[in-house]
Protein backbone atom coordinates (compact mmCIF):
# COMPACT_ATOMS: atom_id res chain seq x y z
CA UNK A 1 0.00 0.00 0.00
CA UNK A 2 1.19 3.51 -0.74
CA UNK A 3 -0.02 6.68 0.91
CA UNK A 4 0.78 10.11 -0.49
CA UNK A 5 -0.09 13.03 1.77
CA UNK A 6 -0.11 16.74 0.82
CA UNK A 7 2.77 16.29 -1.56
CA UNK A 8 4.18 19.50 -3.06
CA UNK A 9 6.99 20.18 -5.48
CA UNK A 10 7.93 23.43 -7.17
CA UNK A 11 10.78 23.46 -9.67
CA UNK A 12 13.00 26.56 -9.89
CA UNK A 13 11.13 28.43 -7.15
CA UNK A 14 11.36 32.21 -7.23
CA UNK A 15 12.58 32.37 -10.82
CA UNK A 16 10.76 33.09 -14.09
CA UNK A 17 10.92 29.36 -14.75
CA UNK A 18 8.99 28.50 -11.61
CA UNK A 19 6.76 25.45 -12.15
CA UNK A 20 4.36 24.12 -9.55
CA UNK A 21 4.68 20.55 -10.72
CA UNK A 22 2.83 18.95 -7.78
CA UNK A 23 0.21 20.74 -5.65
CA UNK A 24 -1.21 19.07 -2.57
CA UNK A 25 -1.34 15.59 -4.00
CA UNK A 26 -3.26 13.23 -1.73
CA UNK A 27 -3.97 9.64 -2.56
CA UNK A 28 -3.92 6.19 -1.06
CA UNK A 29 -3.29 3.19 -3.24
CA UNK A 30 -4.34 -0.11 -1.76
CA UNK A 31 -2.24 -3.23 -1.85
CA UNK A 32 -2.56 -4.91 -5.24
CA UNK A 33 -4.32 -1.98 -6.86
CA UNK A 34 -3.40 -0.99 -10.42
CA UNK A 35 -3.69 2.76 -10.94
CA UNK A 36 -3.59 4.43 -14.34
CA UNK A 37 -2.41 8.05 -14.39
CA UNK A 38 -3.70 10.30 -17.16
CA UNK A 39 -3.20 13.96 -17.95
CA UNK A 40 -2.04 16.42 -20.56
CA UNK A 41 1.65 17.02 -21.26
CA UNK A 42 3.28 18.73 -18.34
CA UNK A 43 0.48 17.89 -15.93
CA UNK A 44 2.90 16.32 -13.46
CA UNK A 45 2.51 12.57 -14.03
CA UNK A 46 6.22 11.83 -14.40
CA UNK A 47 7.01 14.21 -11.56
CA UNK A 48 4.67 12.26 -9.29
CA UNK A 49 6.31 8.97 -10.21
CA UNK A 50 9.77 10.46 -9.84
CA UNK A 51 8.86 11.83 -6.40
CA UNK A 52 7.73 8.38 -5.32
CA UNK A 53 10.88 6.78 -6.76
CA UNK A 54 13.06 9.40 -5.07
CA UNK A 55 14.68 11.15 -8.05
CA UNK A 56 14.27 14.34 -6.02
CA UNK A 57 12.95 15.23 -2.59
CA UNK A 58 9.53 16.93 -2.33
CA UNK A 59 9.18 20.41 -0.81
CA UNK A 60 6.61 19.16 1.65
CA UNK A 61 4.31 16.23 2.26
CA UNK A 62 4.78 12.62 3.08
CA UNK A 63 5.10 9.35 1.18
CA UNK A 64 4.46 6.10 3.04
CA UNK A 65 5.10 2.68 1.57
CA UNK A 66 3.26 0.18 3.77
CA UNK A 67 4.52 1.33 7.15
CA UNK A 68 7.81 2.76 5.89
CA UNK A 69 8.20 6.51 5.59
CA UNK A 70 10.19 6.92 2.37
CA UNK A 71 9.76 10.69 1.98
CA UNK A 72 13.43 11.47 2.68
CA UNK A 73 14.93 8.14 1.73
CA UNK A 74 17.57 8.33 -1.04
CA UNK A 75 16.61 6.86 -4.39
CA UNK A 76 18.96 3.87 -4.22
CA UNK A 77 17.56 2.82 -0.84
CA UNK A 78 13.95 2.92 -2.02
CA UNK A 79 14.87 0.84 -5.02
CA UNK A 80 14.65 -2.14 -2.70
CA UNK A 81 10.87 -1.69 -2.67
CA UNK A 82 10.24 -0.24 -6.12
CA UNK A 83 10.48 -1.67 -9.63
CA UNK A 84 10.61 0.81 -12.51
CA UNK A 85 10.24 0.89 -16.26
CA UNK A 86 11.01 4.21 -17.93
CA UNK A 87 9.60 5.82 -21.05
CA UNK A 88 12.97 5.76 -22.78
CA UNK A 89 14.07 2.18 -23.56
CA UNK A 90 17.67 3.35 -23.05
CA UNK A 91 17.09 4.35 -19.43
CA UNK A 92 16.31 1.01 -17.84
CA UNK A 93 19.26 -1.08 -18.98
CA UNK A 94 23.07 -0.83 -19.10
CA UNK A 95 23.65 -0.86 -22.89
CA UNK A 96 27.23 -2.13 -23.03
CA UNK A 97 26.60 -5.00 -20.65
CA UNK A 98 25.12 -8.33 -21.61
CA UNK A 99 21.50 -9.37 -21.11
CA UNK A 100 22.63 -11.82 -18.44
CA UNK A 101 24.64 -9.15 -16.60
CA UNK A 102 21.70 -6.76 -16.67
CA UNK A 103 19.42 -9.45 -15.28
CA UNK A 104 21.85 -10.41 -12.55
CA UNK A 105 21.99 -6.76 -11.47
CA UNK A 106 18.20 -6.70 -11.24
CA UNK A 107 18.05 -10.06 -9.48
CA UNK A 108 19.91 -8.40 -6.59
CA UNK A 109 17.88 -5.18 -6.52
CA UNK A 110 18.36 -3.54 -3.14
CA UNK A 111 20.31 -6.51 -1.81
CA UNK A 112 23.88 -6.89 -0.63
CA UNK A 113 26.25 -7.34 -3.58
CA UNK A 114 29.04 -9.73 -2.72
CA UNK A 115 32.44 -10.35 -4.25
CA UNK A 116 31.13 -13.71 -5.43
CA UNK A 117 30.96 -14.53 -9.13
CA UNK A 118 28.09 -12.57 -10.69
CA UNK A 119 27.14 -15.13 -13.30
CA UNK A 120 27.44 -18.72 -12.10
CA UNK A 121 26.24 -21.39 -14.56
CA UNK A 122 23.18 -22.20 -12.44
CA UNK A 123 22.03 -18.58 -12.63
CA UNK A 124 22.32 -18.55 -16.42
CA UNK A 125 19.99 -21.54 -16.65
CA UNK A 126 17.46 -19.81 -14.42
CA UNK A 127 17.70 -16.60 -16.49
CA UNK A 128 17.12 -18.56 -19.69
CA UNK A 129 13.97 -20.16 -18.32
CA UNK A 130 12.57 -16.84 -17.21
CA UNK A 131 13.43 -15.02 -20.44
CA UNK A 132 11.95 -17.71 -22.69
CA UNK A 133 8.28 -16.80 -22.01
CA UNK A 134 8.91 -13.36 -23.53
CA UNK A 135 8.94 -15.22 -26.85
CA UNK A 136 11.54 -12.92 -28.35
CA UNK A 137 14.30 -15.44 -28.84
CA UNK A 138 16.40 -13.65 -26.23
CA UNK A 139 17.06 -16.83 -24.24
CA UNK A 140 19.75 -17.73 -26.80
CA UNK A 141 21.33 -14.30 -26.74
CA UNK A 142 22.00 -13.83 -23.05
CA UNK A 143 25.63 -12.98 -23.79
CA UNK A 144 24.98 -10.20 -26.27
CA UNK A 145 25.08 -6.56 -25.27
CA UNK A 146 21.64 -5.26 -24.41
CA UNK A 147 22.31 -2.09 -26.42
CA UNK A 148 22.08 -4.14 -29.59
CA UNK A 149 18.43 -5.06 -28.95
CA UNK A 150 15.37 -3.24 -30.27
CA UNK A 151 13.48 -0.82 -28.05
CA UNK A 152 10.65 -3.30 -27.58
CA UNK A 153 13.00 -6.09 -26.55
CA UNK A 154 14.69 -3.76 -24.10
CA UNK A 155 11.39 -2.64 -22.58
CA UNK A 156 10.22 -6.24 -22.23
CA UNK A 157 13.49 -7.09 -20.47
CA UNK A 158 13.31 -3.99 -18.29
CA UNK A 159 9.81 -5.03 -17.22
CA UNK A 160 11.07 -8.52 -16.47
CA UNK A 161 13.98 -7.04 -14.50
CA UNK A 162 11.74 -4.63 -12.55
CA UNK A 163 9.55 -7.53 -11.42
CA UNK A 164 12.31 -10.14 -11.01
CA UNK A 165 12.16 -9.60 -7.26
CA UNK A 166 8.57 -8.82 -6.35
CA UNK A 167 8.47 -5.05 -5.72
CA UNK A 168 6.10 -3.46 -3.21
CA UNK A 169 5.34 -0.96 -5.96
CA UNK A 170 5.74 -1.05 -9.75
CA UNK A 171 6.17 2.31 -11.53
CA UNK A 172 5.58 2.44 -15.28
CA UNK A 173 6.07 5.81 -16.97
CA UNK A 174 4.70 5.63 -20.53
CA UNK A 175 6.75 2.51 -20.95
CA UNK A 176 5.25 1.74 -24.35
CA UNK A 177 5.27 5.28 -25.76
CA UNK A 178 8.48 4.76 -27.75
CA UNK A 179 7.33 1.47 -29.30
CA UNK A 180 5.43 0.68 -32.49
CA UNK A 181 1.77 -0.31 -31.90
CA UNK A 182 2.33 -4.04 -32.24
CA UNK A 183 5.31 -4.14 -29.87
CA UNK A 184 3.50 -1.79 -27.50
CA UNK A 185 0.60 -4.24 -27.34
CA UNK A 186 2.96 -7.06 -26.60
CA UNK A 187 4.63 -5.16 -23.76
CA UNK A 188 1.19 -4.18 -22.40
CA UNK A 189 0.18 -7.82 -22.52
CA UNK A 190 3.29 -8.80 -20.57
CA UNK A 191 2.60 -6.01 -18.10
CA UNK A 192 -0.94 -7.23 -17.55
CA UNK A 193 0.19 -10.81 -17.04
CA UNK A 194 2.89 -10.04 -14.50
CA UNK A 195 0.79 -7.54 -12.54
CA UNK A 196 -2.10 -10.02 -12.30
CA UNK A 197 0.07 -13.00 -11.52
CA UNK A 198 2.11 -11.30 -8.81
CA UNK A 199 -0.75 -9.03 -7.64
CA UNK A 200 1.56 -6.03 -7.90
CA UNK A 201 0.63 -2.59 -6.64
CA UNK A 202 1.15 -0.54 -9.79
CA UNK A 203 1.16 3.07 -10.96
CA UNK A 204 1.17 3.42 -14.73
CA UNK A 205 1.32 6.62 -16.76
CA UNK A 206 -0.09 6.50 -20.27
CA UNK A 207 -1.47 8.69 -23.03
CA UNK A 208 -3.39 5.82 -24.57
CA UNK A 209 -7.10 5.95 -23.76
CA UNK A 210 -7.36 2.35 -24.82
CA UNK A 211 -4.75 1.26 -22.27
CA UNK A 212 -6.44 3.38 -19.61
CA UNK A 213 -9.81 1.77 -20.26
CA UNK A 214 -8.54 -1.79 -20.54
CA UNK A 215 -6.03 -1.86 -17.71
CA UNK A 216 -6.14 -1.33 -14.00
CA UNK A 217 -8.87 -0.77 -11.46
CA UNK A 218 -8.50 2.93 -10.94
CA UNK A 219 -7.85 6.09 -12.96
CA UNK A 220 -6.38 9.34 -11.67
CA UNK A 221 -6.36 12.33 -13.98
CA UNK A 222 -3.82 15.07 -13.28
CA UNK A 223 -3.85 18.65 -14.40
CA UNK A 224 -1.41 21.41 -13.44
CA UNK A 225 0.01 19.27 -10.67
CA UNK A 226 -3.35 18.40 -9.10
CA UNK A 227 -5.54 15.32 -9.18
CA UNK A 228 -8.66 16.65 -10.96
CA UNK A 229 -10.64 13.46 -11.64
CA UNK A 230 -10.70 10.04 -10.11
CA UNK A 231 -12.57 6.87 -11.06
CA UNK A 232 -12.68 3.74 -8.95
CA UNK A 233 -14.22 0.28 -9.08
CA UNK A 234 -17.46 -0.08 -11.08
CA UNK A 235 -17.25 3.51 -12.25
CA UNK A 236 -13.84 2.85 -13.76
CA UNK A 237 -15.02 -0.35 -15.43
CA UNK A 238 -17.95 1.38 -17.11
CA UNK A 239 -15.67 4.11 -18.46
CA UNK A 240 -15.14 4.32 -22.25
CA UNK A 241 -12.35 6.02 -24.23
CA UNK A 242 -14.87 8.65 -25.36
CA UNK A 243 -15.70 9.57 -21.79
CA UNK A 244 -12.05 10.16 -21.12
CA UNK A 245 -11.61 12.19 -24.29
CA UNK A 246 -14.56 14.31 -23.23
CA UNK A 247 -12.87 14.98 -19.92
CA UNK A 248 -9.69 16.10 -21.66
CA UNK A 249 -11.83 18.46 -23.76
CA UNK A 250 -13.46 19.82 -20.66
CA UNK A 251 -10.08 20.54 -19.09
CA UNK A 252 -8.85 22.20 -22.25
CA UNK A 253 -11.94 24.44 -22.49
CA UNK A 254 -11.62 25.43 -18.87
CA UNK A 255 -8.00 26.35 -19.48
CA UNK A 256 -9.01 28.53 -22.42
CA UNK A 257 -11.65 30.25 -20.34
CA UNK A 258 -9.11 30.79 -17.57
CA UNK A 259 -6.67 32.24 -20.05
CA UNK A 260 -9.42 34.46 -21.52
CA UNK A 261 -10.47 35.73 -18.07
CA UNK A 262 -6.88 36.43 -17.18
CA UNK A 263 -6.63 38.45 -20.40
CA UNK A 264 -9.80 40.34 -19.62
CA UNK A 265 -8.75 41.14 -16.09
CA UNK A 266 -5.41 42.22 -17.45
CA UNK A 267 -7.01 44.63 -19.90
CA UNK A 268 -9.41 45.99 -17.32
CA UNK A 269 -6.95 46.74 -14.58
CA UNK A 270 -3.55 47.33 -16.12
Amino acid sequence: MIEIQNLNKTFNPGTVNEVKALCDINCTIEEGSFVVLLGTNGSGKSTLLNAVAGNFLPDSGKIMLDTIDITRMPEHKRAKYIGRVFQNPFSGTAPDMSIAENITLAAKRGMHRSLGWALPKTAIEEFREKVRPLNMGLEDRLDSAIGKLSGGQRQALTLLMATWLKPKLLLLDEHTAALDPKTANKVIQLTKEVVEKEKLTTMMVTHSMQQAVNLGDRILMLHNGRIVFEFNGQEKHRLKSNDLLALFDQIRRKDQIDAATADMIGQLYI
Binding site: E75, A79, S91, P95, M97, E101, K108, G116
Partner: peptide, 21 residues
Protein backbone atom coordinates in the same frame (compact mmCIF):
# COMPACT_ATOMS: atom_id res chain seq x y z
CA UNK B 1 31.77 -10.22 -9.15
CA UNK B 2 28.32 -9.02 -8.14
CA UNK B 3 29.84 -5.90 -6.66
CA UNK B 4 32.17 -5.24 -9.60
CA UNK B 5 29.37 -5.77 -12.11
CA UNK B 6 27.38 -3.09 -10.29
CA UNK B 7 30.43 -0.82 -10.49
CA UNK B 8 30.69 -1.33 -14.24
CA UNK B 9 26.98 -0.60 -14.59
CA UNK B 10 27.51 2.64 -12.67
CA UNK B 11 29.83 3.79 -15.42
CA UNK B 12 27.44 2.58 -18.10
CA UNK B 13 24.03 3.86 -16.94
CA UNK B 14 23.70 5.57 -13.57
CA UNK B 15 19.93 5.88 -13.70
CA UNK B 16 19.54 2.17 -14.34
CA UNK B 17 21.83 1.02 -11.56
CA UNK B 18 20.36 3.48 -9.05
CA UNK B 19 16.97 1.96 -9.79
CA UNK B 20 18.56 -1.37 -8.87
CA UNK B 21 19.48 -0.04 -5.47
Amino acid sequence: SNFGTAMRATGNNQQMIRAQG
